[in-house]
Simulated assay, not measured.
Amino acid sequence: MNQVKKLLSVVTDKALRFIIARKNVGVRLVFTLFFTLVCGMLSFAILALAFLQFVCLLITMQQNEAIKGLSHKLTAYTYKVLRYITLTENLRPYPFSPFPSEMEPAEVVDLSAPVPEKDAFTADTDSAPAADADKAEEKAADDATADSEPIIPDHKES
């Protein structure tokens, strides 16, 4: 019976040491699970704000700056949360650290401009500059041979 008690005490001692040594990993796991839930709520909020922004845009034909600013801040915060979840960053996001500042300014989107007739990525527009460049190279090569002295194949130097 004493051997069983010794064996159990050794096993429990090793198990406790194992758990204590990995305490930080367990704490990180708990925070990661918490921030995973936060990330899900943030993505839903960003989608709801995007929908609300489109409704405002349809009604007023202008972007709502308050919605745009809030969406931009939530996007920056979501980025920090994702960096924490994926173990890319060790600093816990807000509320455990300051709210992130803007990483880059929001762009001004002009929706009043007409839509271009041709897509910028079509084959016609991509091949046209390349064809023009090929024609220019051929012309330059022709001009270079026309300006040089003619080659006489029968000519033999004595």
Score class of each variant (00 low, 15 high):
M1N: 11
Y79F: 11
T60Y: 10
A45K: 15
D143Q: 08
A128K: 08
S97M: 00
A45N: 12
M61K: 15
F44A: 09
L111H: 06
N90A: 09
S127L: 13
T60S: 12
E149G: 07
F35C: 04
L33V: 11
Y84T: 01
D110V: 02
P153G: 00
S9N: 15
M41W: 09
K156Y: 11
H155D: 08
K5Q: 09
D13C: 04
R28E: 12
C39K: 06
V115P: 00
H155M: 05
V27L: 14
C56D: 06
L70C: 13
V27D: 12
S148L: 04
F54C: 14
K14Y: 08
A21N: 14
L57C: 02
A66I: 14
T75F: 10
L91V: 06
L91P: 00
I59F: 07
D134V: 04
S148V: 01
D124F: 10
A76M: 10
T32M: 11
C56M: 12
T78A: 05
R28F: 07
P114C: 02
K156H: 14
F31P: 01
D147M: 12
R92H: 05
E137F: 02
D13H: 02
S158P: 08
C39N: 11
P95N: 04
M1C: 07
F34V: 07
K118H: 08
T12Y: 03
S101K: 13
K6N: 06
E65L: 15
L33M: 14
E117F: 12
Q53C: 08
A128W: 01
V109G: 02
Q53S: 13
D134C: 03
Q63N: 10
I152C: 05
K156G: 02
T75M: 10
Q63P: 00
L74T: 00
D132G: 05
F44R: 04
F54N: 14
V30G: 14
V11A: 14
E65V: 15
D13L: 05
P153L: 05
V10R: 03
V25E: 15
E65K: 15
H72T: 03
E137A: 14
M103C: 09
S97N: 09
M1A: 10
V115R: 11
E102D: 11
A106Y: 07
R92D: 01
S71H: 07
F99A: 07
N2H: 08
L42G: 05
E117T: 12
E107N: 08
M103V: 09
P98S: 13
A123D: 13
S158M: 06
A113I: 00
S148D: 06
F35Y: 15
T32R: 10
V55R: 15
D132T: 05
A146I: 06
A48V: 08
E65Q: 15
I19H: 08
V25L: 15
L47P: 00
S97E: 00
Q63K: 03
M1Y: 12
Y79H: 12
E104K: 10
E104M: 01
R17Y: 02
